[in-house]
C-alpha cells in the first residue's frame, strides 16, 4: 500500500485535521506521502515533513494552486495518482471539493467522510444525518476518500520527512481565485476546540450571540450555531454545526436555545459531555444531553458566565 494525503493548509501553517487524516492512513498501513499544493506554501510543507511516519512531502508551489481550486488541484493529483493505492484528504470544504472530482477523473470509487478504517478496502461512514452507519467496500485499485477529523486521533509530529518540489503546473484555466473573506476570530477553531458553545433560534438575533462569546472567552471555547440560527441570518454559515455544516466532537458541548433537530444532532452527538440550556422542557436536545437546564437562556447564560 502506498498512500497520498492531500494536506489542508493556508500556505503558512498546516491545519490540525491533516494529522487526524494521517492517523487514518496509518491504520491502512504502508508508505505515506503528503502533498502540499499552494502558493508560497514552504512553511506548511515544513510542518507536513514533521508529521511522524511520513515518507515524503511533495510540494507544488505555484500561483495556480492559490485558493486550492478543484480543477487545478484534481489535475495535479491525477499526475501523481498511479503511484498510489489510496488518496485521502481531510473532510473539509476543500477536500470535499477536490476529491470527488479526482475520483471521477480516475474513474474510481470515492468514499465521503469515513469514520473508521476496517481494512485497506473497507470503511465505515455515516448516512441519513448520522442515524445509520454503513460499512462499504470496493475492489477499485485506487481508493479515494475524505476522512472525518473527529473520528481519528492526532498523529505525532516528531518526524523529518524529505521534501521534494514538483515542477508540474496544471493550470487548466477553467477557474480563477478572486478573493477570500476569512472569519476573523481569536477563539479556537470549531472543529478542533475542546469546548464548543452553540446558539440556536432561541438566541433571537445575532447580537445576542455576544453572551455566548463571553462564556466562550472564559472557557477557551469556540462558538457555533445551529442551522436554524444560520438560516435566520443571525450568524454566518462557517459557524454551522450539523449534517450540512461542521461535525464537532469536543470534550464539552453546550447547546443554548437549540431544540435539537435531527440535522443538528448529526454534528455534535459524539461530544463527550453535552449540556443543553433551553426553556422548552420537551425539546429533543434534552434526550441526548448529559445535563439539562430548563431555563430562560437570557438568565442562565450570564449566570453561567459569572459562575466560571
Amino acid at each position: 500500500m502506498t498512500i497520498l494525503i492531500i494536506a489542508e493548509h493556508d500556505n503558512k501553517s498546516l491545519k490540525e485535521i491533516t494529522l487526524n487524516t494521517m492517523t487514518a492512513a496509518t491504520q491502512i498501513g504502508g508508505d505515506i506521502d503528503v502533498l502540499v499544493a499552494g502558493e508560497n506554501c514552504g512553511s506548511a510543507a515544513d510542518a507536513a515533513a514533521a508529521i511522524t511516519g511520513v515518507r515524503r512531502v511533495l510540494v507544488a508551489d505555484h500561483a495556480c494552486y492559490n485558493g486550492q481550486l478543484a480543477e487545478n488541484m484534481a489535475a495535479l493529483i491525477e499526475t501523481l495518482a498511479s503511484d498510489y493505492s489510496h488518496i485521502m484528504a481531510p473532510t473539509t470544504t476543500s477536500g470535499k471539493n477536490i476529491l470527488p472530482r479526482l475520483a471521477a477523473t480516475l474513474d474510481t470509487s470515492y468514499f465521503s467522510d469515513i469514520i473508521s478504517v476496517e481494512s485497506a478496502d473497507t470503511f465505515k461512514r455515516t448516512i441519513y444525518a448520522g442515524n445509520a452507519i454503513e460499512t462499504v467496500q470496493t475492489a477499485d485499485s485506487i481508493k479515494v476518500m475524505t476522512v472525518r477529523g473527529t473520528a481519528f486521533d492526532l498523529s505525532e509530529t516528531n518526524g523529518s520527512a524529505t521534501i521534494e518540489a514538483l515542477s508540474t503546473v496544471t493550470d487548466l484555466g477553467l477557474s480563477s481565485f478572486v478573493n477570500e473573506e476569512l472569519a476573523e476570530s481569536e477563539r479556537p477553531e470549531l472543529t478542533s476546540a475542546n469546548i464548543v458553545i452553540s446558539g440556536g433560534r432561541g438566541m433571537q438575533n445575532g447580537e445576542n450571540f455576544s453572551i455566548l462569546e463571553k462564556v466562550a472567552d472564559k472557557l477557551g471555547a469556540a462558538v457555533g450555531a445551529s442551522r436554524a440560527a444560520v438560516d435566520a441570518g443571525f450568524v454566518p454559515n462557517d459557524m454551522q454545526v450539523g449534517q450540512t455544516g461542521k461535525i464537532v466532537a469536543p470534550d464539552l458541548y453546550i447547546a443554548v436555545g437549540i431544540s435539537g433537530a435531527i440535522q443538528h444532532l448529526a454534528g455534535m452527538k459524539d461530544s463527550k459531555v453535552i449540556v443543553a440550556i433551553n426553556k422548552d422542557p420537551d425539546a429533543p436536545i434534552f434526550s441526548v444531553a448529559d445535563y439539562g437546564l430548563v431555563a430562560d437562556l437570557f438568565d442562565a447564560v450570564p449566570e453561567l458566565e459569572q459562575a466560571l
Binding site: G67, T93, S94, F177, V178, N179, E180, E181, L182, D238
Partner: peptide, 8 residues
Amino acid sequence: VDSGLQTV
C-alpha cells in the same frame, strides 16, 4: 468554505 467565504 470552512474559514469563511471564497470568491472564484
